[in-house]
Amino acid sequence: MSWFQKILPPKIKRRAQASKKSMPEGLWSKCPACNEVLYRADLESNLEVCPKCGHHHRIGARQRLAMLLDAEGQHEIGAHITPLDPLKFKDSKKYPDRLKEAQTGTSETDALVVIGGSVKAVPVVAAAFEFKFMGGSMGSVVGERFALGVEAAIESNSAFVCFSASGGARMQEGLFSLMQMAKTSAALTQLSRHRLPFVSVLTDPTMGGVSASFAMLGDLIVAEPNALIGFAGPRVIEQTVRETLPEGFQRAEFLQEKGAIDRIIDRRQMRSELASTLAMMMGRPALAA
């Protein structure tokens, strides 16, 4: 059910559902920022950025990597790593059932996808979070795939790029998840030792344990416009300090103003900007326009 249907009063909802049959599925979508009704194909060709207001819609991990990497020469890293349930965790649902649900819903086995390849011929290993997989939460599989990605980058003399989109550490794996913060950060020390660049791209949202580990350790830290980025969630802070948060708090623009990130990059320029800066950091010749 779309967000639009959720807010409709029941009466209209029934009517809307009844008339749904005549509407082809997914032809139109509404921008949550400016309410403009957009033609799906237009939105797609604009890399899921609203052509009217520039709002960056959340996108999946594979779509993200497809936008960045050169089409040829891609190979996936760490797909053979899959989740376990070390704590036999159960809240209202068992953790394995939640995993299964997420796997069916996203066609991914966990919340991080890592692919080796190139960006405009610059060798790159790129990782991206699948936010729809349990809120992009970081458990053991995310940590291991990240570490394998870093090692693959070292082996192939490539840069490492990670697109974060995560609520933080995955509660269902308890302290194993917390230790992934230490593990991923440690892996980056090895990349540095080989003088290979790590570019961290913060997308909406990057919070908690992901933000407080590798995401803030980039040689370059860039963000997409208006992405929510922070350690504690806005609601937790509001409850703690009991005041309303300032306008734009924890948004990418706020972080740039506070000196926490290098740049904000529009998704439509991401590929060419990253290629150009990576080429400089890796001592490669200027790229043809």
């Binding site: 989740p83 599989v141 593990k183």
Partner: peptide, 10 residues
């Protein structure tokens, strides 16, 4: 640090 984690390897 590298070894932290509990996962399955296929």
């Amino acid at each position: 640090l590298r070894a932290y984690g509990s996962f399955k390897e296929i």
